[in-house]
Design a protein around this nucleic acid. Structure first.
Lengths: 229, 229
DNA sequence: CGCCTGTGCCGCAAAGCCGCCGCAATGACG
DNA sequence: CGTCATTGCGGCGGCTTTGCGGCACAGGCG
């Protein structure tokens, strides 16, 4: 199934010809004549990218973008007339992902659309990957480098954070020092095993400052460490 | 049949567009405008995951989560505004499984929903542990270096663990001391036979501390040992 | 140029583990 | 029943692993 794209322009000629081209490229296109209709339509029938004319009756592209961005981070490409370069700057400043000046070649539009979509999906990959870890009183949010124990923040260094994350993401699972090393640095980094001990030491100490009864990082003699939930 | 998801937000635009997207992805969506209605609706029509806006009239997401968590462990994803990061921390501390800041892309939401659902179902089926040994009252999980007798943990050293594992993995099968030696250390390690006796001694003692009637490690005079199921 | 933080590693002391010894208990067998 | 082989068990000395304080070095920053 093709990617769904909204096309908003008051010029019926553009609407028809561009939508034809896009459809022939495998996209599914929803056409709207003005911002207001588009806003309503998009609520019912979401798309993955919108191509907006800036100048339109009833609600122009700028205003539409603003309303859309209130609720979603939909990628947007603006269509601008050659003479109003001011609007271009404004549109981009507002958060458009790209813009094209009329007249434009259809091929260029398609290229831009593909580029914006690629960029957007890349961003989401980055965002979607790591989730929140919650194990009992421990809370970790890798996105924000946030770690808290019993609701109170614990300030960790990067290395400490990664090691604790590796342990807490699979509570109960035993990790030897090499595995923790791989988690903290990439693989193929060779360091003294005992370095891990140092980080564990600092981790335990930092959390114990707030809660002296903390003992969830367990040592397994001759094997490694594990996090007890 | 799709997974059922509750969507609670006071913004009708979000409600419509997000529910459309989710439905097009094969989910079944129940929409609610506020916490109170949602609470009543969810009682009648349970879901497997809830997406909650934090700020809502009558009963906000926070309060709703609290009430929901009183009775079930329903996975929850929060929608938060970019500006109030305080709420995020609070929401997470309260037990949300993830959160997304507005504005967000629908694709991201879907990715997060899938991730949370995956994690939840993973937790339920107890992490797909392929290596667990269960023989009657004995339970061994090498990945976690966990051994329990009649539900109570028995702390074993590596060598003890390996020997018991070798015995219990083939209950009834006789193992001579050399075989047990190979299981515990690699082959090509030469030690006094009687060392195995020592480990057996310690094994029996450790388990007997918890259950004096334990006698499942059997001695075969002149041959070796076997585990009786 | 100094201060500060993060980090890797060293060295010592404590804790844990293991192999073996010696003696008592048990089993095999004539 | 006597004798020898095998096993159970307490214990001990020594080795390994770990905890922890601390030090030196590197990089960031004013």
């Amino acid at each position: 199934m093709g990617t769904r794209i909204a096309l908003v322009d008051d010029d019926q000629n553009i609407l028809t010809s561009v939508s034809m081209t896009l459809e022939s490229e495998g996209f599914e296109v929803d056409c709207y004549h003005d911002g207001e209709t588009a806003l309503r339509g998009l609520a019912r029938r979401p798309v993955e990218l919108a191509v907006l004319d800036i100048k339109m009756p009833r609600m122009d592209g700028m205003e539409l973008l603003q309303k859309l961005r209130g609720t979603s981070s939909l990628p947007v490409i603006f269509l601008t007339s050659k003479d109003d370069e001011l609007d271009e700057a404004l549109g981009l400043g507002m958060g458009a992902d790209d813009y094209i000046t009329k007249p434009f070649s259809q091929r260029l539009l398609i290229a831009r659309i593909r580029a914006v979509l690629r960029r957007a999906s890349q961003d989401e990959m980055d965002m979607a990957a790591p989730n929140i870890i919650r194990q009992g009183e421990l809370l970790m949010d890798p996105d924000r480098h946030l770690c808290s124990w019993k609701g109170e923040e614990v300030k960790l260094t990067v290395t400490e954070f990664l090691i604790l994350q590796a342990l807490a993401s699979r509570p109960g699972m035993v990790k030897n020092r090499d595995q923790l090393m791989d988690a903290a640095y990439g693989e193929s980094v060779f360091l003294d095993d005992r370095t891990i001990d140092s980080h564990i030491k600092r981790l335990r100490r930092k959390i114990k400052v707030q809660d002296s009864s903390f003992d969830n990082i367990e040592t397994l003699y001759g094997i490694g460490y594990k996090y007890r939930a």
